[in-house]
Write a protein that binds this DNA or RNA. Structure first.
Lengths: 246, 246
DNA sequence: ATCTGACCTTGGTCAGACCAGTAGGATGAC
DNA sequence: GTCATCCTACTGGTCTGACCAAGGTCAGAT
């Protein structure tokens, strides 16, 4: 004759997870805090320890907490690598998503470069300049050149001084690095690609230096578009100065 | 004199997680597949069932698999809600990040609207038009108006037909909904805000219809900028036609 | 005052058990 | 022979209680 479900709307795992979620979101559990032991948590919530462990493990893979052996469970600053994990899984099962992810990267970078024009400091400019020099220096190397390219774009995002944009860009770029190498090899067949790479990045750099958001955005978009164009032409077998004769 | 660690490099949870991760990434486990029962998995890997459950639960919160009660565990298409969870946690602990998240939202939407100009179909246009009508109809209501506003922007992103952009926008927008309401109340004191809201969205709509990416992007950015401006003026106590006299 | 070691607590794991439904085969009725 | 029904094996969901190894703490010895 008693209530089948007294107060608890969620059972077991959901209960514990919701409990911790609430504390985390409300701010009563802050990064650095060490939460109570698994046994105590289990007893407080009226569930068994394995269930508590499930919830803690779930928070761990989400990068919210860290379980330290024989020490306890502590709240951490949300980590980026979670997104990386997620996207890795997501991409593994939908390879056709690459172009789509690229669109998101373009979105992030174009916004970042606008912010960078307003917020970048001397240190950012210097770092950008070094990245640009590195691109020129490694123009003939596939691997090093790709890394230099990546570093340049990453520096732009860093110069936006936006944590969120940086996090997102890191996650997205991480996914794209795999395809980056093959892309670079693809366009190596075009001699003109080298001047394109150097000149484009230089123009982007100059636009940021000039603190001209519109020009920077437009130049960056054009840069991406030209890269796409090269890849498209490579796919149909063209090389510089000669149309594919299919 | 015996091996402390026979062959297994990872213990317990890591072992199971790595095992499943490998299968997932290699593609031998594809979405829709039902994996073996927890008991069998435990026995195969030489671990206990609670450990297996930890690993499965971890994959669940990552949106990789779905545990169906009394049915089994099946591999799912990577789900969006994971990002939502993550961002929610991440933001909860760094409230000052709101403006920063807004920048990311602008980034996503501006890229989305460009794609929308190229990819949107009649159905998208119709939905946009309905959203626009809803904005006009609910212009005097705080809650309904906010929802209509949100719906309009969401429709734009949907019209981009980009899964990644949609996912990111959903996550980011979810975070911003909390602050959305207060923002809307803040600007209610400006009578001119109503015409701004309606006219701006209409201009955005028209730019998409015209399939003009540049104009759409610019108009959307302006829309966001004006919103910021209103909030800035509200903060210093101004109202329409009267400068704050502090 | 310092050092040392026992003890308590922590996470890490396991084994076995029970419940509640589901799926599919066995069984019975038509 | 076909169909509806029932039963059993199996699934996830959870609990209990236990053991291990190692970090922290603090009392007692030096």
């Amino acid at each position: 004759m008693e209530l089948t479900r007294p107060v608890e709307s969620d059972k077991g795992f959901e209960k514990v997870f919701a409990f911790l979620r609430e504390r985390l979101l409300a701010g009563s559990l802050k990064p650095g805090d060490r939460l109570v032991s698994e046994r105590e948590l289990a007893s407080q919530l009226g569930v068994s320890r394995p269930i508590v462990r499930e919830a803690l493990r779930a928070l761990t893979v989400l990068g919210i907490v860290e379980i330290r052996d024989r020490i306890g469970t502590v709240v951490t600053r949300p980590d980026v690598s979670v997104l990386n994990d997620f996207f890795t899984f997501a991409l593994a099962q939908q390879a056709d998503m690459l172009d789509d992810v690229m669109q998101a990267r373009v979105a992030i970078e174009c916004q970042a470069i606008r912010l960078a024009c307003a917020r970048a400091g001397i240190a950012d400019f210097e770092r950008l300049q070094r990245a640009l020099a590195q691109i020129e220096a490694t123009i003939d190397e596939a691997d090093a050149g790709g890394m230099a390219d990546f570093e340049f774009h990453r520096t732009i995002v860093l110069a936006s001084h936006s944590e969120t944009l940086t996090v997102l860009h890191n996650s997205l770029a991480g996914l794209l690095t795999h395809s980056h190498r093959s892309r670079r090899e693809l366009v190596q067949s075009f001699p003109s690609v080298k001047t394109y790479l150097v000149d484009d990045h230089r123009r982007i750099f100059e636009a940021v230096i000039a603190r001209d958001p519109e020009r920077a955005d437009a130049t960056l978009r054009k840069h991406f578009a030209i890269g796409d164009e090269y890849r498209r032409r490579a796919l149909v077998g063209e090389t510089d100065g000669r149309k594919a004769s299919r």
